[in-house]
Design a protein around this nucleic acid. Structure first.
Lengths: 190, 190
DNA sequence: CGCCTCGATGTCAGTCGCTGTCATGACTAC
DNA sequence: GTAGTCATGACAGCGACTGACATCGAGGCG
């Protein structure tokens, strides 16, 4: 209970996103972000490992949602299991969070350093999914393929969802993208 | 023709890989890499945008090989077109280059900063493939899915190839992984 | 041969990301 | 109220990276 002003990380994140939107990632120093949140540079680095990380708070919960979505699924083939995780992962992306997600993604897309970090987070997600699949007895190569495919579906759906106005539920977009992937591979088999 | 010692980038790359292998990425400064190649820090940054980039020379040629492999293919469905690029992309990975590729990958896997950069390069490859597919009339979502899937197949095959001793041709490993992906999605349809 | 151009390199100063260390101040527990 | 804990501040320092300017070596041209 907050001996000090609570929500330090969130304040820093908001300050960073605001400043990035206005001056660009390179045009903002960590000291400025911290000052904007009423803190010092040193404190920023106590809460975030580096300047990029400030836009990627709460990654563990997101990853966990994916994993629980998968472990909740009944046994099945590797790809179905991996795709079952998508349902859990879709939870945080509600219509009301759409504007925030959009602003954040805009900032990320604007700078390679932030895109790099996003890719690393998605890669970590794929690795976690792969591990969960091998724990269920799937071989390493099929597990990796299924996990990476699930992440591709997620990312593609997320891009489409962000491009829209948020009215369409994320889960719906994701189901559509998944169907499209199935259709594509079915066509290639012909 | 080399008024100065030629092969500057290559010398810097070799020096960096050697030093990273011995002292780790964080244990080596750019000044040390440059000195090891008989140059100064400032010159290093004239040839490479940053410290990480030194291990990713020749990315454009690699990407180009993928694209020409794809444009050489006859018309077909999106997924088949994307996978046609894999053949071209396999070219640089010969048995004789296996030791070098393995040492490089070992260094990359040892540090998140280098893994990030690798992911960014692969993402750029997927983007280029997506563009080439849309140029051929494929819709944006199927193009993105096919391109990302091709990259997933490539990366998975590369991991397996690196894990082996290089005796098996890379193209063969890649074909196997692709077949496995087809099998996985076919099973999920059932 | 001597002059000029040009591209690769060296030198230097400076900013910023990031870290280790120590001090301070607020709140809790006893 | 005294001690302990924890977020924070203050300060010094390293290394990545950049801009500006000087230098040096090779080739072109008289």
């Amino acid at each position: 209970m907050a001996r000090w002003e609570s929500g330090t990380q969130e304040r820093l994140q908001r300050a960073a996103l605001d400043l990035f939107a206005e001056h660009g990632y390179d045009g903002v120093t960590v000291a400025q972000i911290a000052a904007h949140a009423g803190l010092t540079e040193r404190t920023f680095f106590r809460w975030f490992a580096d300047k990029r990380e400030v836009l990627f708070r709460g990654q563990e919960e997101f990853e966990q949602a994916f994993l629980t979505g998968m472990t909740a699924a009944p046994d099945g083939d590797a790809m179905s299991l991996a795709m079952a995780g998508l349902a859990g992962g879709a939870a945080p992306f509600t219509a009301e969070r759409h504007p925030w997600a959009r602003a954040r993604q805009r900032a990320i897309d604007a700078h390679p350093a932030l895109r790099e970090r996003e890719l690393l987070k998605l890669s970590a997600l794929a690795t976690a999914l792969t591990g969960a699949l091998t724990d269920r007895g799937v071989g390493p190569v099929p597990a990796a393929l299924a996990a990476e495919s699930a992440v591709v579906v997620f990312r593609t759906a997320f891009t489409a969802w962000i491009a829209g106005d948020g009215a369409r539920p994320f889960a719906e977009v994701q189901a559509e993208v998944l169907a499209e992937l199935h259709a594509l591979l079915a066509a290639a088999r012909a």
